[in-house]
């Protein structure tokens, strides 16, 4: 099941606690504030700072 709009409304960046958005064709979530990208692996968003990459 993809991350839908309702879930995006309550999800927050683990680092900034601010909203995240879907990127990379829905395969990752990105925080605009800290530029961290959280991967979605096998349909499971990995909302861990240690597993995130920082992308401009």
């Amino acid at each position: 099941m993809p991350v839908d709009a309702e879930l995006l409304e309550i999800l927050a960046c683990p680092n900034c606690k601010t909203p995240v958005k879907l990127v990379k064709n829905g395969t990752a979530l990105k925080c605009d504030q800290c530029h961290r990208v959280y991967p979605i692996k096998d349909d499971i968003p990995v909302m861990l700072i240690d597993e995130a990459t920082v992308e401009p």
Binding site: P14, K41, P45, L48
Partner: peptide, 21 residues
């Protein structure tokens, strides 16, 4: 179970906003 969504997350640092559930 299409009504269930899974997340990898630390229970001590839930990455949801206040008053969400």
């Amino acid at each position: 179970l299409t009504h269930v969504r899974l997340f990898e997350m630390d229970a001590a640092h839930l990455t949801f906003r206040d008053d969400s559930f």
